[in-house]
């Protein structure tokens, strides 16, 4: 059976660390980084990349459109 696996790329400098993507992620993939970007925001990153399904929910709710989502089919 085909399974899907996803990945997101966060534009770190555009991210304002609002936390909405972290809260919306159904797989608990995202978190806010300990580090801050040049504007002082704790940016979002994939803490558990292996869990990402590429559902796009994080990108959909992102007010700053700084998340790009990729998804690929993998053979189980």
């Amino acid at each position: 059976m085909a399974k899907v696996k996803g990945a997101v790329v966060v534009d770190v400098e555009v991210c304002k660390g609002c936390d909405l993507c972290v809260q919306t992620c159904p797989e608990d993939v995202l978190a806010l980084h300990r580090e801050v970007n040049s504007r002082g925001y704790h940016y979002s990153f994939m803490k558990n990349p292996e869990s990402c399904t590429g559902c796009t929910n994080c990108a959909v709710v992102c007010p700053d459109t700084c998340i790009t989502v990729y998804r690929a089919k993998v053979r189980a």
Binding site: A7, G54, V60, T65, I67, T68, V69, R71, A72, V74
Partner: peptide, 17 residues
């Protein structure tokens, strides 16, 4: 499958308009 193998243009499902 590694994350870097997923992040490829052909796998893009959501990008900035």
């Amino acid at each position: 499958m590694e994350t870097k193998d997923i992040i490829k243009p052909e796998n893009l499902v959501y990008g900035k308009s």
